[in-house]
Structures are given as C-alpha cells and as structure tokens.
Amino acid sequence: MGPPPPPGFAWSPSPRGGRDTSPAAPHRTSAERVRALTTIFALLLASWPALAADIAATERRSDTGLLAPETRAMQDDDTANPGMLTVLDGAEAWSRAPGPNVPACSGCHGDAPASMSGVAARYPAWSRDAGGPVDVAGQVNLCRERRQNATPLASDSPELLALTGYVAHQSRGLPISPPEDPRLEPARERGRALFGRRMGQLDLACAQCHDDQWGRRLSGATIPQAHPTGYPIYRLEWQAVGSLQRRLRGCLTGIRAEPFPAGAPEYVELELFLMSRARGLPIETPAVRP
C-alpha cells in the first residue's frame, strides 16, 4: 500500500491525474500542490528498495504488451496506425533529391527495403565522420551534410522524423542487435550511469521505475520496462509522431530535471544503453503508445 499521504492532502483517483478538490484544501495554490506531490513521491521512494540489477533477458518485454486492446489493434493495422503517414512521407523524401546536382538517398542506397533492412536494429553506431556514436537521425544529417551538400534537418522536425521513421520501418520485426564495437563502450557506460542516476527535484532515476518497479501501477498506469523498440513512435498524448529524444526530454521534465539540449550527446549515450538493454526484442516502428 505504501506510506500515507501527508496531512491535509487528498489524492484524486481520476485516470487523467485529476486535481485536489477536497474540503481540506479547497484553495490550495499550484505551488502548494507541487510541494505536496513532491512530498508524496519522496515518501513513496523511501519505501522502494535499492536499485536492482538489469532486467534479465528472459524477462524483457516490449511495452506493446501493456497496450489497451484498441491501441494494440491500431498499432498492428497499417491502415489504422497514424505513424504510417510519417513513414509514407519518408518514402517520398527517400527518393527526392534535396537540391540540384546532388543525389537523393535512393541515389546512393538504392531500394530502402533491401539496403536499410536491419540498420535501425544496429544503431546507434560508431561514425567515422562524427568521430563518435550517432543515432539514425544523426546519420541522416551526416549524409545530408557530407554527401548531399544540404542543411541538417532540425531535431524532431517532420522531415527528419519521416526519414528516420522510413529507415527504421525497414527493420520492423527484426531483433535489436547492438554492434559489438569497443569504441562504443565508453559512451554506452555513460548511458548506463545516466539511467541509474537520481536527478531532478523528485530525486528519481530511470532505473527506479523501469528496472525496479516495472509491471506495478503508478497514477493509474502500469510502469513499462521502457524499451526503445518502436521509435519514432506515435503517442496519443502528443497526437503526433516523436523521437526517442523527445520522450527522454519528457521523462526528465516529469521528474523536474533540466532536460539536456536538443541533440546533446547524452541522448545518444542513453539510447546506446537502452538498445543494449533491449537486445533481442523486435523493432516495431512505428509503434503506437498512450
């Protein structure tokens, strides 16, 4: 059951989070509600055990298993999955040159279903051009700069999401297979450390929820293992397709931590670790999530 809430605080059971409408605090300000919620989280965390080990390979589960039946049906039906519109945009961009006298993506890589099959399952990967690890979006922008003489696309822009979604879609159903490249290990270990680091005003680490408490309920929702199997994903909350970096920024904001700047290396380091943590699970792009 966990510890009781602090005196004078009433928790709303509304599935959307609700608000405190109890007679005990009818005029509570936003700042007071924030302090009360922070106190509740602190009390809950005090009752949680110390960080556990990584999730065993035999216990790894895609977050798809937690979806409501209607959301799962939406994801599984390409004619109903709204993320497929972004994939179709990506197919068009794949064959369109970004400027005169430069090749389209297809000009170098040919037919994407053949040349890009399995690529997303092996990223982030080491890039000689970048001198470090890059994710799929980073590789798309490197190709634009170095091969197409084009301006890099903005993070989470529709154009970049379309191309990354199209590339990742070519690996759908294939198992995540992180590269065994020793040059990636320092960045992967930094990602592991970030996943286990307490951050923000709520003093929470990613691992406290997604390693230690997965499968339990918090605020009316089941805590997932948080594997990056379906990015870019369509989130019903966003009513749009978004990247893993956008989701990580949302998590940081949720624990009241300062998000890293867009495109910061910390995001790629976290993805490196998360992809290793999800080894063997199938790519699901474009996934649908609440």
Score class of each variant (00 low, 15 high):
53 A>C: 08
226 A>D: 12
283 I>R: 01
39 T>M: 11
269 E>F: 06
161 L>M: 10
262 A>Q: 13
52 A>E: 14
64 T>Y: 10
234 Y>H: 08
231 Y>V: 09
187 A>L: 08
167 V>S: 02
196 G>L: 09
149 N>Q: 14
155 S>M: 11
98 P>M: 00
229 T>F: 04
281 L>V: 05
114 A>L: 14
40 I>P: 02
286 P>G: 03
143 C>A: 03
63 D>Y: 05
206 C>D: 05
115 S>G: 00
217 R>T: 15
214 W>F: 14
257 A>I: 08
142 L>R: 05
233 I>R: 06
223 I>W: 03
165 G>V: 04
136 V>K: 02
245 Q>S: 11
163 L>P: 00
116 M>C: 04
75 Q>V: 06
70 E>F: 09
41 F>M: 12
144 R>D: 00
140 V>P: 01
238 W>M: 11
72 R>E: 12
125 A>F: 07
27 H>D: 15
103 P>N: 06
173 G>K: 09
194 L>V: 11
62 S>Y: 02
198 R>F: 10
225 Q>A: 06
77 D>E: 08
182 P>Y: 09
171 S>K: 02
180 E>H: 12
243 S>M: 10
134 V>Y: 00
151 T>Q: 14
270 L>M: 14
240 A>K: 13
268 V>T: 15
89 D>R: 02
80 A>S: 13
283 I>W: 03
199 M>V: 13
102 V>I: 10
79 T>Y: 04
124 P>Q: 06
234 Y>V: 01
94 W>R: 00
230 G>F: 01
137 A>S: 14
28 R>M: 15
37 L>W: 14
280 G>F: 01
98 P>N: 00
191 G>F: 02
11 W>H: 10
198 R>W: 09
221 A>I: 10
252 L>A: 13
5 P>D: 06
145 E>V: 15
243 S>K: 04
33 R>Y: 11
240 A>C: 12
263 G>H: 04
208 Q>M: 13
256 R>A: 14
197 R>C: 10
161 L>S: 02
109 H>R: 01
261 P>A: 14
203 D>W: 09
285 T>F: 00
121 A>K: 01
108 C>E: 02
11 W>M: 14
175 P>N: 06
173 G>F: 05
176 I>H: 00
181 D>C: 10
242 G>S: 15
218 L>P: 03
105 C>W: 00
